[in-house]
Design a protein around this nucleic acid. Structure first.
Lengths: 212, 212
DNA sequence: TAACATAAGTAACAATTGTTACCGGTCGGA
DNA sequence: TCCGACCGGTAACAATTGTTACTTATGTTA
């Protein structure tokens, strides 16, 4: 069981000021989530900002009819840009965050984000970097949806998931993939079979092995 | 010909500190663009941040094959979030900005954005609000592409363009619309004909009239 | 082991979007 | 006025994705 200071040292080296670390140590709350737990949900009010220490979160978007789509993953050392915008403007969440695996967060009270930006330069640049990288991720997501067909999107999805989970074997179902790409099981099955025929993957029940 | 101070009063009332206005007056450069001028282009380096005073900009994204897509419009009182991320991290532009009509900007040197955030609270909240609203616009764009068919996207495009241009008559071609929605002329022609049959619009050469 | 739920395979068909090809109308300059 | 560039209409077809329906395989539990 690591302390907050140890977690910060390991995952957030760019937060340099020792006074900042001390403050985080005082007000931060270490919170753990199990795989598939919801960390944040549509319409929920966002009072806390999460610093991700281990595991990973997937960030989802849905429309009025309930169709869902994955936007991007968050990994250790990162935080959720939507939390920032929500915390700073007291708005409801427009996204859902789900633990992709068992995940550890340091939760920070929303009110401090703003004042820390004036006090701690490294905090300000952390916040600005978060906006920048999340912006880029959203642009990548737009590229994927707008410019690529489903077979390419599926392949990239498998690559991303393999990176995030740090494994060549993905334990999931065709239905779950379809949900996260806003497609249907039949289409995903069809395209996975193509990838198998191309020799890129092996298929099994609840299992996709990506060949090296 | 308005002065910078007058432009700020009119379009950026939220920038409250008179010292901030004085600084902008000193270092800002009023720049004018004609319709279809490029204000920023893919891969260009971003040394200036634009405050939009009159007219409008459309922000575009493209992929490696040259396919383009409109992300959103900027209107008076707004600035480009990509400029912020680029200016603050000295990166190349990942988007293109084109004047949708004749447009007036106040250009600010990139280096000051950061220091002003510490000096002027209203500047900081302006920057943070910009991130928030652009984030929301990108999410809307994702919704549009991921969850809606081309007929709905086209209808929303016409609505948006009508709002931005403040007119019920759009002067454009089917080809241009197709480019901005990353589709083809034939598809757009087909769908526009549908909208005409539904009584929602009238079609003419270089002209689409949206019925009230 | 039998019964059951879940996951996956697949074929046939529908809907949407993209492609090719060609035609005719409009407008501006030579 | 005639030519040529541009714009729009449209049909036929192709490709992709989604839908329906049914089957087979696998793993769990009574």
């Amino acid at each position: 069981m690591s302390s907050i200071i140890e977690l910060l040292n390991e995952n957030f080296p760019e937060l340099q000021e020792s006074e900042l670390r001390a403050e985080i140590d005082q007000v931060g709350l270490i919170t753990r989530y199990k795989m598939d737990d919801k960390v944040m949900d549509y319409g929920g009010s966002v009072q806390k900002m999460p610093l991700l220490n281990s595991g990973s979160l997937k960030i989802m978007r849905r429309d009025a009819q309930g169709n869902e789509l994955i936007l991007y993953y968050l990994q250790p050392g990162e935080t959720c840009a939507m939390s920032l915008t929500c915390c700073l403007s007291d708005q409801k969440s427009e996204i859902r965050a789900v633990a992709e695996e068992d995940t550890t967060l340091i939760m920070l009270p929303a009110g401090l984000i703003d004042s820390w930006m004036l006090k701690y330069p490294s905090w300000k640049s952390f916040v600005m970097n978060t906006y920048r990288t999340r912006f880029e991720e959203l642009l990548n997501t737009i590229d994927s949806i707008a410019f690529h067909k489903m077979d390419e999107r599926l392949w990239r999805y498998l690559m991303d998931k393999s990176t995030v989970n740090n494994s060549h074997v993905l334990e999931t179902t065709h239905q779950k993939i379809a949900d996260e790409l806003n497609s249907t099981r039949e289409v995903i099955s069809r395209l996975l079979k193509q990838l198998e025929k191309q020799g890129k993957i092996d298929l099994g029940r609840n299992k996709i092995r990506i060949k090296p």
